[in-house]
Computed example of a mutant assay.
Amino acid sequence: MLFGRHFRLKTDHQPLLRIFGSKKGIPVYTAYRLQRFALNLLLYDFDIECVPTHKFGDANRIVKHVKPDEDYIIANINLEEDLRAVAQSTQADPLLRKVYHHIQHGWPQSEHSESDIQRFQARQESLSVVDGFIMFAERLVIPSLHRKRCLEQLHCGHPGMQRMKALARSYVYWPSLDADIVNFVKACQHCAAVARSPPHSSPVPWPKQTAPWQRVVVDYAGPIEGEYYLIAVESFSKWPEIIQTSRITSAATISILGGLFARLGMPVILVSDNGTQFTRAEFADFCASNGVEHLTTAPFHLQSNSQAERFVDTFKRAVTKIREGRGSIQQALDIFLLT
């Protein structure tokens, strides 16, 4: 009946003029169902105008005579209580009170408006006033008084940061919504208790040495047939020294390293793990008296002493394979060092 004819569309909802009557296209923040409705109306030739509600009698009478069922009325009563509280808080909120005024009476020039007002002004095409509260498209603009309660309700099931943002973007809005959600989730003790471990940072390599015997890494391997082996690797040349011992006490370690350093010289830095033989006071006195800087790696982090750990692993695997049918452990050790 209307196709091919020019007609006038009347509404008492001012934002619909921008959605259905704009010559610049449909606003980006328009709800999808309104976008589809606007696309359908593009097939028709019409003008749209806003009529004050008190002059919109025919449509209002029709709406008032529609009687919802009982279940809807109960739900509507609870919803109206919440909306009434939001509407009252909107008028009490200094910022939203100004936004409410600008939506109805026009926005100031951008360069003269406050920064908080500008954040709403940039989205003015999607802002509207309904029964005393502010809507951003189909989302309710929440006053600052109710934002904490709103975040608590959104986080009731601990859905996680991204899921919580998606839920919020379907129902509510305020300018700092995303940042408030991030801070709220980070402050949740229950979420933190079961959160995944943070990603590992990139490993920081040891500084490269410019001369031999500046840094020596040491570690123990074994026991192999009741014997231990102190392994020392020089970082610059990768030269290994392997000394067999039946004891791995601090005194035995000092004795072994004393003989090694007497033959090859004192290193500048000695690196070891946190074994008790390396952390006792007598070992610290040995290093200090010989001018050696002793560094221990991070506990339970074998990668920090990776050069020694790798050589220990290589040594144990190689000796086990060489010994198959080759005789004693000493012969296997000699073959390993020779090759």
Rank of each mutant, 00 (worst) to 15 (best):
L230S: 09
L230F: 00
L230G: 01
L230T: 01
L230H: 01
I231T: 02
V233Y: 09
V233M: 09
S235C: 11
S235H: 08
F236S: 05
F236H: 01
F236R: 05
S237I: 08
S237V: 08
K238H: 08
W239G: 03
P240M: 09
I243D: 04
I243R: 10
Q244Y: 11
Q244G: 00
T245C: 13
T245A: 06
S246Q: 13
S246K: 11
R247Y: 07
T249Q: 08
T249W: 02
T249E: 01
T249M: 06
S250Q: 00
A251F: 10
A251S: 14
A251V: 05
A252I: 01
A252T: 04
T253K: 02
S255W: 12
S255M: 15
S255H: 11
S255G: 13
I256L: 00
L257C: 05
L257M: 00
G258D: 15
L260I: 12
L260W: 06
L260V: 12
F261N: 03
F261D: 03
L264N: 15
G265C: 03
M266I: 13
M266V: 14
P267H: 09
P267R: 07
I269F: 09
I269L: 12
L270G: 02
L270N: 00
V271T: 09
V271F: 04
S272I: 07
S272C: 10
D273Q: 06
N274W: 11
G275N: 09
T276R: 07
T276G: 12
T276M: 13
T276H: 05
Q277C: 12
Q277S: 02
Q277T: 14
Q277M: 13
F278G: 02
R280L: 10
R280K: 15
R280F: 13
A281K: 14
A281Y: 08
E282M: 09
E282A: 02
E282R: 01
F283W: 03
F283P: 03
D285V: 15
F286V: 07
F286P: 11
F286K: 05
S289T: 10
S289C: 10
S289N: 12
S289M: 14
N290K: 13
G291F: 10
L295D: 03
L295K: 01
L295H: 03
T296V: 06
T296P: 04
T297M: 04
A298L: 13
A298D: 13
P299M: 06
F300Y: 15
F300K: 11
H301L: 13
H301Y: 14
L302H: 14
Q303W: 14
Q303R: 09
Q303H: 12
Q303F: 13
S304H: 11
N305Q: 02
S306C: 10
S306D: 10
S306T: 07
A308S: 04
A308E: 02
A308P: 00
E309G: 05
R310F: 04
F311A: 05
F311H: 05
F311P: 01
D313W: 12
T314A: 05
T314L: 08
F315N: 01
K316E: 10
R317V: 14
R317K: 15
R317Q: 09
A318C: 07
T320H: 07
K321D: 14
K321E: 15
I322E: 09
I322R: 04
R323G: 05
R323N: 01
E324T: 11
G325C: 08
G325M: 11
